[in-house]
C-alpha cells in the first residue's frame, strides 16, 4: 500500500470545537473543558483507501481560532493540501467567520479541497442553523457536515471525505 502524506489545516472562529473535533478523530476522546489553543497543535492520523491501495497520512494543523478581528496566522497554512473549516451550530456569527476565512485563504493560497463542519450538533436545544442555511453553506463549501465532537457524529465521515478529495486532487494523476 502506497503511503502518501498531506498537510491539512483546521480553521474557524474561537471555541467552535476545532481541537475537540481533532481529538475525537485522532484519539477518539472528548473533554467538555474548553482549552484555548495558542499557535498550532500538530497531530497525525492515517486513513486507508483500500480500493486505491493508498494509505493517506494526514498531518493535521489545528490552528488557533481567529482573533476578535477575524484574523488567523496565515503563515501556518503555507503548503496545506486541504482545509477543515469548523463553525459552531449554536453561534451563528461563527458561520460568517468560516466564510470570511474561506475567502481570505483562497485569496492568499488559491483554492484547495475542503469540508465544513457545523459542530455541536448534540446541543439540539441551542441549535440555530436552519436547513435552508445548511443548504446555502453546502452550495458554498461543497461538503458540509453537522458534526458533534462530543458524540462523534459525522466526524469520521467528514475527515474521510476530505481525505478522498485530497487524494483525488493531488495523487490520482501522479
Amino acid at each position: 500500500m502506497t503511503v502518501v502524506t498531506s498537510k491539512v489545516c483546521v480553521v474557524g472562529d474561537f471555541a467552535v470545537g476545532k481541537t475537540s473535533v481533532i481529538e475525537r478523530f485522532v484519539n477518539n476522546q472528548f473533554s467538555d473543558k474548553y482549552l484555548t489553543t495558542v499557535g498550532v497543535k500538530v497531530d497525525t492520523k492515517e486513513i486507508e483507501h483500500k480500493a486505491l491501495g493508498i494509505s493517506h497520512k494526514l498531518v493535521i494543523w489545528d490552528v488557533a481560532g481567529s482573533d476578535r478581528f477575524g484574523h488567523i496566522e496565515l503563515a501556518y497554512l503555507r503548503g496545506a493540501n486541504g482545509y477543515i473549516f469548523v463553525a459552531d451550530g449554536t453561534r451563528l456569527p461563527t458561520l460568517r467567520a468560516a466564510r470570511d476565512l474561506y475567502q481570505q485563504i483562497t485569496e492568499e493560497y488559491g483554492s484547495a479541497p475542503c469540508v465544513l463542519l457545523v459542530n455541536k450538533n448534540d446541543l439540539t436545544d441551542q441549535w440555530n442553523v436552519r436547513d435552508e442555511r445548511m443548504e446555502e453553506l453546502t452550495a458554498h463549501f461543497g461538503n458540509t457536515y453537522r458534526t458533534s465532537a462530543k458524540t462523534g457524529d459525522e466526524v469520521e465521515t467528514a475527515m474521510t471525505r476530505l481525505s478522498e478529495l485530497i487524494v483525488d486532487n493531488d495523487f490520482r494523476n501522479e
Partner: peptide, 18 residues
C-alpha cells in the same frame, strides 16, 4: 511531520507549534 509544507525558498518562522 510538521516540516511538510514549512520549508520555503525564504527564511520562515513558525511560532508556537505544539
Amino acid at each position: 511531520p510538521y516540516l511538510l509544507g514549512s520549508l520555503d525558498s525564504v527564511p520562515t518562522k513558525l511560532e508556537y507549534l505544539m
